[in-house]
Design a protein around this nucleic acid. Structure first.
Length: 298
DNA sequence: CTCGATCCCTGGACGC
DNA sequence: TGCGTCCAGGGATCGA
């Protein structure tokens, strides 16, 4: 569930806590979600974490040059995606290792930067040079940095549902299920509305509300629904400000209509059927797993 | 291009 | 108390 505001919160915390630290050693646990574990063990020791940034839902730990090859100026970074349940935080080496701790970076000051992820939906990769820039190019613009014109360009000629477009990281990077639903509710747009069917005023409203919600959520250190914690181990507070997400069956904060849930783009989508009018010709949202046969696993 | 289905994974909720 | 089942969800992938 970590989305843009949660990842931004973690990035800021890590920038404060571990930027400048040298990585002395790497210990790996389960590696089935790591792109190239051997590269991580080989490339990280001896390098400094020069800066921690957010890129969409990724944390980008920018790495300095290797000590044994200081003339090498190639950009290198450790990409960390928190998936659903990932935590990345510095801990004292005396702190007991939490269950599902899969990566430990020993730091120059004696602390350990630990990656904990029960479901392993996250992703970790060491990338450098062209490989790094190619990877970053796969993603759309950051919603907090893009202009209204760019945002409209990315949305208005697409025939996919707006909810699917908001979730598509190659269209806009960083938005996930919670902030997609919250911004659509605030902008009074139905999740199954097609991008190309949105009017200019609607696109402008969505752009503004999305930015407003993301900024407010960052201020409150993100949403902690189940297990999100920031780099200091502190939960966020934006979940207290959710207007539709997770509110199926409850009353709309604007008009008191009962909030509904439907599967759109394969994800639970919460919306107010009164405030967010369905398009006349809109395809019906799917029912997802309800009513679907579950195949027996061998 | 866009869609739905499927898989990855574990813990929490729920029924009995 | 304990067991089985269902479900959540970001993203990759595949076939329609």
């Amino acid at each position: 569930m970590p989305e843009l505001p949660e990842v931004e919160t973690v990035a800021r915390g890590l920038q404060r806590e571990v930027a400048g630290q040298k990585i002395l050693g790497v210990t790996l646990g389960q590696t089935d979600f790591i792109d190239n574990p051997a590269a991580i063990e080989r490339e990280l020791p001896g390098r400094r974490i020069v800066r921690v940034e957010r890129y969409g839902k990724f944390l980008l730990l920018r790495l300095g040059a290797r000590e044994d090859a200081p003339e090498q100026k190639e950009d290198a970074a450790l990409l960390v995606h928190l998936g659903m349940t990932g935590l990345l935080m510095p801990q004292s080496d005396t702190e007991p290792q939490a269950k599902h701790t899969h990566v430990i970076l020993l730091l120059g000051d004696g602390r350990e930067l630990r990656y904990i992820d029960p479901r392993r939906f996250g992703r970790i990769a060491y990338l450098a040079g062209d490989g790094l820039s190619r990877e970053l190019q796969r993603f759309g613009a950051d919603p907090l940095e893009t202009s209204l014109e760019q945002f409209a360009q990315a949305i208005q000629h697409r025939r996919a549902r707006i909810k699917a477009l908001l979730l598509d990281q190659s269209v806009i990077r960083g938005v996930g299920n919670i902030y997609a639903d919250e911004s659509l509710w605030k902008a009074k747009i139905h999740p199954i509305q097609l991008g190309a069917r949105l009017g200019g005023a609607q696109v402008k409203e969505l752009y503004a509300r999305l930015q407003e919600i993301l900024r407010k959520a960052i201020q409150l250190r993100g949403s902690s629904i189940s297990d999100f914690l920031d780099a200091e181990g502190v939960p966020g507070e934006y979940q207290l400000h959710h207007r539709v997400y997770g509110r199926e069956g409850k009353r709309c904060f604007r008009c008191k209509t009962t909030i509904r849930r439907a599967i759109v783009a394969g994800r639970s989508s919460y919306y107010c059927p009164n405030c967010q009018r369905a398009p006349r010709d809109g395809k019906k949202p799917g029912r997802g797993k309800a009513g679907k046969q579950r195949r027996t696993k061998r």
